[in-house]
Design a protein around this nucleic acid. Structure first.
Lengths: 237, 237
DNA sequence: GGCAAACACGAGCGGCCGCTCGCGTTTTTC
DNA sequence: GAAAAACGCGAGCGGCCGCTCGTGTTTGCC
């Protein structure tokens, strides 16, 4: 499992100058770090409104208030901007779901569990709308898709464990499909939620929670609520 | 209601040569019609794999086995290709949902109703994958988005009527939100279904039906199943 | 057969975009 | 304070893409 760790990606900092590779260690000044953050903010805005492909590097530079040349002082190409932005968002996301999707404290009833999970993820996505655009956009670069797939798989595995905890008798194939389905349902609800504001948004949040709860309740009810279920009574799935 | 009819869009054929406008009636030969169909098929393939923006007209022409000049003999620009393809698909879609979403024969139980609707729409989308790509792609041309919005609104209105029929006491705002939610859930399930084949696909179809049924059953149950519900008992929405 | 219109071709034009390069400015280091 | 390195600029290069145009071929009509 250690090989799966992705350390720090070594993009913004290198270990030694005499590395021997073609790596340029390029020691950043504080000003440079500020510019990078500025550029990533601008990139988030532009990617969010135009999508990855339609976003032009010149537009990102303009949004950040710098020249195209300055942008390419900190990023080797357009893809690297999206990757760095995506990595930072994914790290934040990992912090978020790390707190929520741990199957340790699953003694809570489903309704409350869902409340916590959904609220956290909704909140994250509302505060970082570029995340949704980068993850679910159809035109992200290849390296980005890998990161997305990794995150997707990780979230899915956690979700599956959670479902399996509530419904231990269900076969793996079934829980996997249910987990994928939950993910898709959440994504659909998220899209509606991001498209509305205020009371409307709250209404859709409630609706999403209802949909997820009602979808999952019978699944876990089969194994938890009715323990002495006869083995022949599979629920048409 | 007559003004809402969109006749034939008058794109492929015109009424009279002495029209007086800048319209060029351009009488097509059988060969030309064949080429148009050929080009639209190719466009469907390319749009489906690359999305609208990333698809190049040269690629569409190549896919159809003709030269770029030939393509522009039948379509004024790239957008027109997507629009014509979208219009044809929308017309087919209208035929499909016209048969299914009519609120006339809603005497059927929810499960069977959902079965019919979902099966039809899934079938349509499996046979015309370009439809999904064109309708839900983020980079479709403006004229396309209008058509999509119109179809979306029409489907939504039908769905809302259907829901209102089953739950006549629910306020319009609530049924509208529920209809939007159903739409989103269906879209999410469709995406999963299109991404799988064979037994896996069937499994997701069942799962989608389950999700929709469980989401809608309590909603219509509140008004149909328990008629003598006290007015104060609103279900947490 | 003869003529006009529709069909077909493909090299190439204009424009946009990702990216570079030469040069000037600010900061760090000794 | 002076050399070195990081920062900053913006005109412009190469390449791709949507689209055109001049020319040649096929089809419909008399």
């Amino acid at each position: 499992m250690v090989d799966k760790q992705q350390t720090e990606d070594g993009r913004t900092q290198a270990s030694a100058p005499e590395d021997g590779r073609d790596e340029k260690p390029r020691r950043r000044q504080a000003r440079g770090e500020r510019r990078i953050a500025q550029l990533l903010d601008a990139a988030a805005t532009v990617f969010c409104t135009s999508g990855y492909t339609a976003a032009s590097t010149n537009a990102i530079a303009r949004e950040a208030g710098v020249s195209p040349g300055t942008l390419y002082q900190f990023f080797p190409n357009k893809e690297a901007i999206a990757i760095e932005l995506g990595d930072r968002l994914i790290h934040k996301m990992r912090d978020t779901y790390g707190e929520v999707l741990t199957p340790a404290d699953t003694a809570a009833p489903l309704r409350e569990l869902l409340d916590g999970i959904v609220d956290r993820f909704i909140d994250f996505n509302c505060q970082h709308p570029a995340f949704f655009a980068l993850m679910h956009g159809p035109d992200v670069p290849g390296r980005m898709a890998e990161a997305h797939d990794a995150l997707h798989a990780a979230l899915l595995a956690r979700l599956q464990d959670l479902i399996a905890f509530y419904a231990p008798d269900a076969p793996r194939a079934a829980t996997a499909r249910i987990a994928e389905m939950c993910f898709g349902l959440f994504k659909a609800g998220l899209e509606l939620i991001l498209a509305h504001e205020g009371a409307e948004r709250d209404g859709y949040v409630t609706e999403l929670k209802n949909a997820l709860f009602r979808y999952l309740d019978p699944v876990i009810g089969d194994a938890v609520g009715a323990v002495a279920q006869p083995p022949g009574a599979t629920s048409g799935g």
